[in-house]
């Protein structure tokens, strides 16, 4: 009981300075206004087993609130489509569909992206503790998994951006490997 009280006090202490100028609710409202768009991405995976990062590039298309298409163009063409709770991956001639409802851990992982993009605070707080720093023009949102199962895979997710646009998502995995996803929006014509 006391522990929990202390915990929430601590949370309050971290959140308070931000809330004065710019708080999570405000960020979420901003993000929720973003109705979607197209972006280029560069993803770098830093893996301990490899001497160099693995780099992939491609395009992402987001349609609020729950459709996200990630088309990898290099090194190999591959399409990942997240539509509601169904993830489909298409590579070469193979197609794989996963229903996220069947995979609670994967669902939590996907929710970290989807919740951020759509400004769905409730979905994020289901699995993560949220910490915000910076201001509206340059913010950093840190997600720390609250569930032990998720924490055994991902230690921390850091999302940074400006206004309602997410720019970088970084995953720090439990084994020390890192994935950095840079997002560069393509202006709508």
């Amino acid at each position: 009981m006391i522990k929990r009280l202390l915990g929430s006090l601590l949370l309050l202490a971290i959140a308070l300075p931000a809330s004065a100028a710019f708080d999570i609710g405000q960020l979420m409202d901003d993000l929720a206004k973003h109705k979607g768009g197209k972006a280029k991405f560069v993803e770098k995976k830093y893996l301990s087993i490899l001497d160099k990062p693995v780099i992939s590039t491609g395009e992402m298309t987001y349609t609020a609130p729950d459709r996200l298409e990630k088309r990898t163009l290099t090194p190999k063409v591959e399409t990942l489509l997240l539509d509601k709770d169904i993830v489909s991956i298409e590579r070469d001639k193979q197609k794989l569909s996963i229903n996220l409802a069947n995979q609670p851990e994967a669902m939590a992982f996907v929710d970290s992206i989807r919740g951020t993009l759509s400004g769905n605070r409730a979905a994020l707080e289901k699995n993560y503790a949220l910490y915000l720093s910076g201001n509206s023009d340059k913010w950093v949102l840190t997600l720390l998994p609250s569930d032990q199962k998720i924490a055994s895979m991902v230690l921390r997710i850091t999302v940074s951006g400006s206004k309602n646009q997410v720019r970088v998502i970084e995953y720090l995995q439990a084994d020390g490997d890192r994935v950095v996803l840079n997002i560069d929006p393509v202006e709508a014509k």
Partner: peptide, 8 residues
């Protein structure tokens, strides 16, 4: 290694 780049 290419496959490592993939989400799967």
């Amino acid at each position: 290694i290419d496959l490592l780049a993939s989400p799967a």
